[in-house]
């Protein structure tokens, strides 16, 4: 474990906790994309299958369970909670997210480290996570006023994989870890998708004004 990976995991954990707090306290999921949340459930289920087959550490196991539980909980709130589901921007969250699943799976069948079920699903989860934020970013452009909690949630979510990029650089040089091209390229694509959000988020933070993405 290195400081970059720990910071990345904490940023990721904080983002999901922030989102859950926003939904629970405001009883609203306005501005949040259900499509992105559902893609994240698929990402975590496909990636954390080794939860039952390999024990790395208490930390690793607990964090996997937390990410699976929180992502399922958020989808439950947005789909079934009687008050929260009324606040879902159904008409704005129109990205057909099931469209991205088959290409990611097909790519995982073609490009992977090893052709086994676990490895292909793990690779699929990396490709899917790289594009999972798209519905949320598109919804943001359609949302007039983005509340602070949502902005912070997306910033932390983007920051986590950016920190993982630093973690991979650290591991490659310091631990002489072998090249992880699939993780590296997926992580780069994922972080690049946040580029313009980061720009407008930091700009709004510097000028102390409301976060606004150009349509």
């Amino acid at each position: 474990m290195n400081i970059f990976r720990l910071a990345g995991d904490m940023s990721h954990l904080l983002s999901v906790i922030l989102l859950l707090l926003k939904i629970r306290t405001t009883k609203s999921c306005a501005g949040i994309s259900l499509k992105t949340q559902e893609l994240y459930v698929v990402v975590f289920l496909a990636r954390y299958l080794n939860l039952f087959t390999r024990y790395y550490s208490f930390y690793n196991t607990v964090m996997k369970l937390v990410f699976i539980a929180t992502s399922v909980c958020i989808v439950w709130y947005m789909r079934f909670h009687k008050v929260v589901k009324q606040t879902y921007n159904k008409d704005l969250d129109t990205f057909r997210h099931y469209v991205v699943i088959p290409p990611c799976f097909l790519l995982a069948l073609l490009v992977h480290h090893e052709f086994t079920v676990m490895e292909v699903l793990w690779t699929f989860s990396l490709y899917l996570e790289a594009v999972a934020i798209l519905p949320q970013l598109i919804l943001l452009q359609r949302t007039r006023n983005i509340d602070n909690l949502t902005g912070n949630y997306i910033f932390l979510l983007g920051a986590y994989r950016a920190l993982y990029l630093l973690n991979w650089i650290y591991r490659f040089f310091m631990e002489k870890a072998q090249a992880r091209w699939i993780s590296w390229i997926s992580g780069l694509v994922q972080t690049a998708l946040y580029a313009d959000f980061f720009y407008y988020y930091i700009k709004s933070w510097k000028n102390n004004e409301k976060l606004k993405l150009p349509a």
């Binding site: 990976r5 790395y56 550490s57 480290h113 090893e114 993982y164 973690n167 870890a177």
Partner: peptide, 10 residues
């Protein structure tokens, strides 16, 4: 096997 990257990350 050693060639597979460690899955110790989240």
């Amino acid at each position: 096997n050693p060639k597979l990257p460690q899955k110790d990350e989240l």
